[in-house]
Computed example of a mutant assay.
Amino acid sequence: MALTTHTTPSGFVLPSIHAAKPFFTQQPNPATQKTVTENWTRLILSYARHKKLFNLRVEDATDDKSEWDEVLRNPRIQRRLRPSHLAAILSSMVAANQAMYEPPNQTSSVLLFWRSPEEWAQVLYDWANSTGHLNTIMTFYEIVEPPVPSPLEGLPLPILRKAIAVLTKSARAQIIAVADGEGVRFLPGVPGR
Protein backbone atom coordinates (compact mmCIF):
# COMPACT_ATOMS: atom_id res chain seq x y z
CA MET A 1 0.00 0.00 0.00
CA ALA A 2 1.34 3.41 -0.95
CA LEU A 3 2.04 5.87 1.84
CA THR A 4 -0.63 8.50 1.32
CA THR A 5 -2.63 10.80 3.53
CA HIS A 6 -6.12 9.73 4.48
CA THR A 7 -9.11 11.79 5.61
CA THR A 8 -11.01 10.25 8.54
CA PRO A 9 -14.81 10.34 8.90
CA SER A 10 -14.38 13.28 11.30
CA GLY A 11 -12.54 15.28 8.61
CA PHE A 12 -9.08 14.92 10.12
CA VAL A 13 -6.27 14.31 7.62
CA LEU A 14 -3.98 11.53 8.76
CA PRO A 15 -0.37 11.99 7.62
CA SER A 16 1.14 9.52 5.17
CA ILE A 17 3.27 7.94 7.92
CA HIS A 18 0.01 6.60 9.40
CA ALA A 19 -0.06 4.15 6.47
CA ALA A 20 3.38 2.72 7.35
CA LYS A 21 3.23 -0.56 9.29
CA PRO A 22 6.42 0.20 11.33
CA PHE A 23 4.74 3.37 12.65
CA PHE A 24 2.51 1.14 14.80
CA THR A 25 5.40 -0.90 16.25
CA GLN A 26 7.94 0.03 18.91
CA GLN A 27 11.30 0.19 17.20
CA PRO A 28 14.41 -1.45 18.71
CA ASN A 29 16.70 1.35 17.48
CA PRO A 30 16.44 4.28 19.98
CA ALA A 31 16.92 6.95 17.28
CA THR A 32 14.21 5.43 15.11
CA GLN A 33 11.87 5.08 18.10
CA LYS A 34 12.51 8.73 19.01
CA THR A 35 11.36 9.75 15.52
CA VAL A 36 8.30 7.49 15.75
CA THR A 37 7.42 8.97 19.16
CA GLU A 38 7.80 12.53 17.86
CA ASN A 39 5.49 11.74 14.93
CA TRP A 40 2.92 10.09 17.21
CA THR A 41 3.08 13.09 19.56
CA ARG A 42 2.39 15.54 16.72
CA LEU A 43 -0.42 13.33 15.44
CA ILE A 44 -2.03 12.93 18.87
CA LEU A 45 -1.87 16.64 19.68
CA SER A 46 -3.17 17.65 16.23
CA TYR A 47 -6.05 15.21 16.45
CA ALA A 48 -6.88 16.30 20.01
CA ARG A 49 -7.01 19.92 18.87
CA HIS A 50 -9.14 18.98 15.84
CA LYS A 51 -11.69 17.12 17.99
CA LYS A 52 -11.20 19.24 21.15
CA LEU A 53 -10.22 16.16 23.14
CA PHE A 54 -8.33 16.51 26.39
CA ASN A 55 -8.09 12.95 27.72
CA LEU A 56 -6.19 9.99 26.34
CA ARG A 57 -6.01 6.65 28.14
CA VAL A 58 -3.78 3.66 27.44
CA GLU A 59 -6.91 1.51 27.09
CA ASP A 60 -8.06 3.71 24.18
CA ALA A 61 -5.56 1.74 22.11
CA THR A 62 -7.76 -1.36 22.35
CA ASP A 63 -11.23 0.24 22.41
CA ASP A 64 -12.94 0.24 19.00
CA LYS A 65 -15.55 2.68 20.36
CA SER A 66 -12.98 5.15 21.65
CA GLU A 67 -12.94 8.70 20.28
CA TRP A 68 -9.32 7.92 19.40
CA ASP A 69 -9.96 4.78 17.33
CA GLU A 70 -9.57 6.44 13.92
CA VAL A 71 -6.06 7.57 14.90
CA LEU A 72 -4.80 4.68 17.02
CA ARG A 73 -5.85 2.07 14.45
CA ASN A 74 -5.44 1.78 10.70
CA PRO A 75 -7.76 -0.91 9.30
CA ARG A 76 -6.41 -0.34 5.77
CA ILE A 77 -3.08 -1.89 6.81
CA GLN A 78 -4.51 -3.96 9.66
CA ARG A 79 -2.48 -2.23 12.36
CA ARG A 80 -3.31 -0.91 15.81
CA LEU A 81 -1.09 0.90 18.31
CA ARG A 82 -0.41 -1.44 21.22
CA PRO A 83 -1.17 -0.23 24.76
CA SER A 84 2.48 -0.62 25.83
CA HIS A 85 3.59 1.54 22.89
CA LEU A 86 0.95 4.18 23.68
CA ALA A 87 2.04 4.15 27.34
CA ALA A 88 5.64 4.85 26.25
CA ILE A 89 4.46 7.71 24.00
CA LEU A 90 2.38 9.21 26.82
CA SER A 91 5.36 8.97 29.17
CA SER A 92 7.47 10.85 26.64
CA MET A 93 4.75 13.49 26.25
CA VAL A 94 4.55 13.99 30.03
CA ALA A 95 8.36 14.31 30.21
CA ALA A 96 8.22 16.97 27.46
CA ASN A 97 5.40 18.87 29.25
CA GLN A 98 2.96 18.14 26.41
CA ALA A 99 0.67 16.20 28.73
CA MET A 100 0.15 15.50 32.42
CA TYR A 101 -0.97 12.36 34.18
CA GLU A 102 -4.53 12.82 35.42
CA PRO A 103 -5.38 11.72 37.96
CA PRO A 104 -1.90 12.05 39.44
CA ASN A 105 0.05 9.04 40.73
CA GLN A 106 -0.84 6.74 37.82
CA THR A 107 0.55 6.33 34.30
CA SER A 108 -2.39 5.17 32.19
CA SER A 109 -4.37 8.39 31.62
CA VAL A 110 -3.25 11.87 30.61
CA LEU A 111 -4.58 15.34 29.96
CA LEU A 112 -3.18 16.63 26.68
CA PHE A 113 -1.71 20.08 26.20
CA TRP A 114 -2.67 20.72 22.58
CA ARG A 115 -2.27 24.27 23.77
CA SER A 116 0.44 24.90 26.33
CA PRO A 117 -0.58 26.29 29.74
CA GLU A 118 0.88 29.62 28.58
CA GLU A 119 -1.29 29.57 25.44
CA TRP A 120 -4.37 28.68 27.52
CA ALA A 121 -3.50 31.55 29.86
CA GLN A 122 -3.56 33.99 26.94
CA VAL A 123 -6.83 32.52 25.61
CA LEU A 124 -8.32 32.82 29.11
CA TYR A 125 -7.14 36.39 29.60
CA ASP A 126 -8.29 37.49 26.13
CA TRP A 127 -11.68 35.89 26.80
CA ALA A 128 -12.01 37.62 30.20
CA ASN A 129 -11.05 40.95 28.63
CA SER A 130 -13.36 40.61 25.61
CA THR A 131 -16.35 39.57 27.74
CA GLY A 132 -15.93 42.38 30.27
CA HIS A 133 -14.79 40.19 33.15
CA LEU A 134 -11.73 42.19 34.21
CA ASN A 135 -11.90 43.11 37.91
CA THR A 136 -14.76 40.70 38.51
CA ILE A 137 -14.65 37.42 40.38
CA MET A 138 -15.62 34.30 38.45
CA THR A 139 -15.85 30.74 39.65
CA PHE A 140 -13.93 28.08 37.77
CA TYR A 141 -17.28 26.54 36.84
CA GLU A 142 -18.44 29.78 35.18
CA ILE A 143 -15.29 29.76 33.06
CA VAL A 144 -15.44 26.16 31.82
CA GLU A 145 -19.27 25.95 31.59
CA PRO A 146 -20.19 29.38 30.21
CA PRO A 147 -23.76 30.23 29.15
CA VAL A 148 -22.54 31.09 25.63
CA PRO A 149 -19.99 29.26 23.44
CA SER A 150 -16.41 29.92 24.48
CA PRO A 151 -12.96 28.55 23.59
CA LEU A 152 -12.70 27.55 27.28
CA GLU A 153 -15.84 25.41 27.29
CA GLY A 154 -15.08 21.98 28.71
CA LEU A 155 -11.51 22.87 29.68
CA PRO A 156 -10.41 20.42 32.40
CA LEU A 157 -9.85 22.08 35.78
CA PRO A 158 -6.18 20.99 36.09
CA ILE A 159 -5.39 22.78 32.81
CA LEU A 160 -7.44 25.82 33.90
CA ARG A 161 -5.47 25.93 37.16
CA LYS A 162 -2.17 25.85 35.23
CA ALA A 163 -3.37 28.70 32.99
CA ILE A 164 -4.46 30.75 36.00
CA ALA A 165 -1.08 30.09 37.64
CA VAL A 166 0.59 31.60 34.56
CA LEU A 167 -1.68 34.66 34.81
CA THR A 168 -1.04 34.95 38.55
CA LYS A 169 2.73 35.00 37.99
CA SER A 170 2.31 37.85 35.51
CA ALA A 171 -0.05 39.77 37.87
CA ARG A 172 -3.01 39.38 35.52
CA ALA A 173 -5.09 37.18 37.83
CA GLN A 174 -5.64 36.47 41.49
CA ILE A 175 -7.06 33.28 43.03
CA ILE A 176 -10.04 34.02 45.28
CA ALA A 177 -11.82 31.69 47.71
CA VAL A 178 -15.54 31.71 46.93
CA ALA A 179 -18.50 29.97 48.55
CA ASP A 180 -18.83 27.50 45.66
CA GLY A 181 -15.16 26.52 45.62
CA GLU A 182 -12.44 28.29 43.69
CA GLY A 183 -12.61 31.55 41.84
CA VAL A 184 -10.38 34.00 40.07
CA ARG A 185 -10.28 37.74 39.58
CA PHE A 186 -8.80 38.91 36.29
CA LEU A 187 -6.71 42.04 36.68
CA PRO A 188 -5.92 44.66 34.06
CA GLY A 189 -2.68 43.65 32.38
CA VAL A 190 0.60 45.35 32.98
CA PRO A 191 1.86 46.92 29.73
CA GLY A 192 4.56 44.81 28.12
CA ARG A 193 3.37 41.50 29.62
Rank of each mutant, 00 (worst) to 15 (best):
R80V: 05
M138I: 07
V190I: 15
I17P: 06
D126H: 11
T7N: 02
V144Q: 08
I137V: 15
A87Y: 03
T7E: 06
R80W: 03
A179Y: 13
L3R: 06
A163G: 07
N29H: 14
N29F: 13
K65S: 13
K52A: 08
V13W: 00
W120F: 11
L53N: 07
L157V: 15
P156Y: 02
P117S: 02
A121S: 14
G189Q: 15
F140V: 04
P191C: 03
D126T: 10
R193D: 09
M100N: 04
H133P: 00
T32E: 13
T136P: 00
P191V: 05
S91K: 15
V36R: 12
R49A: 14
A87H: 13
N74K: 02
A96D: 15
Y47I: 06
P191N: 05
R172Q: 12
S130V: 05
P146F: 08
A165N: 15
L90R: 05
D63M: 00
T62R: 12
A177E: 14
V178W: 02
E70L: 06
E70P: 07
K34C: 03
S16H: 11
L53P: 00
A48W: 09
A96C: 12
A99D: 02
A173D: 00
E145G: 04
F113E: 02
A61M: 06
N74D: 01
A99R: 00
S108Q: 02
M100S: 02
Q33I: 02
G192M: 05
D64V: 12
M100V: 09
M1A: 15
G183H: 08
E153V: 10
L3S: 08
H85T: 10
V36S: 09
N29C: 12
L160Y: 02
P15Y: 04
I44G: 11
P151I: 08
D180C: 07
G154L: 09
L112T: 06
L124F: 10
R193F: 14
A48V: 05
Y125K: 08
W40H: 10
E67W: 00
D69G: 05
T25V: 14
E38P: 01
I44N: 05
I164C: 00
V71A: 04
N105S: 15
Q122W: 06
L152E: 03
R76G: 06
Y125T: 11
M138V: 10
T131K: 10
P9F: 09
Q33D: 15
T168M: 10
L152Q: 07
F54Q: 03
R73K: 14
R49Y: 08
P156H: 03
G192K: 08
V123L: 13
L155G: 00
S46W: 06
H6W: 11
R161L: 11
Q122N: 06
F140P: 01
W114H: 15
F12W: 03
V148A: 12
K34P: 00
N74F: 01
S130D: 12
V184L: 01
W68V: 14
D180F: 03
Y47P: 10
T107Q: 13
H50R: 05
D60A: 05
P103R: 04
M138R: 12
P156G: 02
V148M: 11
R57E: 14
